[in-house]
Simulated assay, not measured.
Amino acid sequence: MFLVPDSNIFKWTALIKGPSETPYEGGIFQLVFTVPEHYPLQPPQVRFLTKIFHPNVHFKTGEICLDILKNAWSPAWTLQSVCRAIIALMGHPEPDSPLNCDSGNLLRSGDIRGYQSMARMYTRLAAMPKKQ
């Protein structure tokens, strides 16, 4: 995990590795954090810049559905711990609260192979380091 501020302290960029033994393994995913003025009393806004096929991530906007970024936020959370929670979510998707209905429907219908195949394909297309 690599987390750095932009020139504006309220904007941060993170690079996270896809967790091992998931369809995201081998991928490097870029996140952007927008930190509110009242942080840590309010959660940061976080979204994926790297395209990812995941039930809890909106495919077009990169918005993430994660309780700690909404109603379960605590000032004890840091930007680094938010990254760790997102990595955990990548390994344990919640198909019952999907932002990506296609991905959520595959998991809810039991088509694990279909979900993993699509997730691996998008990881290869969008998150794998390009070979020179």
Rank of each mutant, 00 (worst) to 15 (best):
89 L>C: 11
85 A>Q: 01
86 I>K: 08
63 E>P: 01
86 I>Y: 04
90 M>H: 13
80 Q>E: 14
70 K>I: 04
73 W>P: 09
74 S>M: 04
82 V>K: 06
68 I>T: 06
61 T>S: 15
70 K>P: 06
76 A>Q: 02
98 P>F: 00
64 I>Q: 02
88 A>R: 15
63 E>I: 02
69 L>F: 02
95 P>Y: 03
77 W>I: 04
95 P>R: 10
83 C>S: 06
91 G>P: 09
87 I>Y: 02
73 W>A: 11
62 G>A: 08
68 I>P: 05
73 W>Y: 09
72 A>D: 14
72 A>V: 00
64 I>A: 04
94 E>Y: 02
88 A>S: 15
96 D>N: 15
63 E>C: 01
65 C>Q: 10
63 E>Y: 00
72 A>I: 02
61 T>E: 09
90 M>G: 11
87 I>R: 12
74 S>K: 11
89 L>A: 07
85 A>T: 05
75 P>Y: 09
63 E>W: 00
86 I>D: 11
87 I>E: 11
78 T>S: 12
73 W>N: 12
61 T>D: 06
77 W>M: 13
83 C>E: 07
64 I>K: 03
66 L>Q: 07
80 Q>Y: 03
62 G>N: 06
87 I>G: 07
62 G>V: 04
94 E>T: 10
91 G>Q: 13
81 S>R: 10
66 L>C: 05
70 K>M: 11
82 V>S: 10
67 D>R: 10
76 A>D: 05
99 L>H: 03
84 R>G: 01
71 N>D: 14
96 D>E: 15
63 E>K: 12
75 P>R: 13
64 I>F: 01
88 A>I: 09
81 S>P: 04
70 K>T: 10
73 W>E: 09
73 W>H: 12
90 M>A: 14
64 I>N: 01
92 H>M: 14
66 L>V: 07
62 G>I: 02
98 P>Q: 01
75 P>Q: 10
90 M>V: 12
74 S>H: 03
97 S>T: 15
95 P>S: 08
95 P>Q: 09
96 D>S: 14
93 P>E: 07
95 P>I: 05
89 L>W: 09
75 P>A: 12
78 T>I: 00
77 W>F: 15
90 M>C: 15
96 D>G: 10
66 L>G: 02
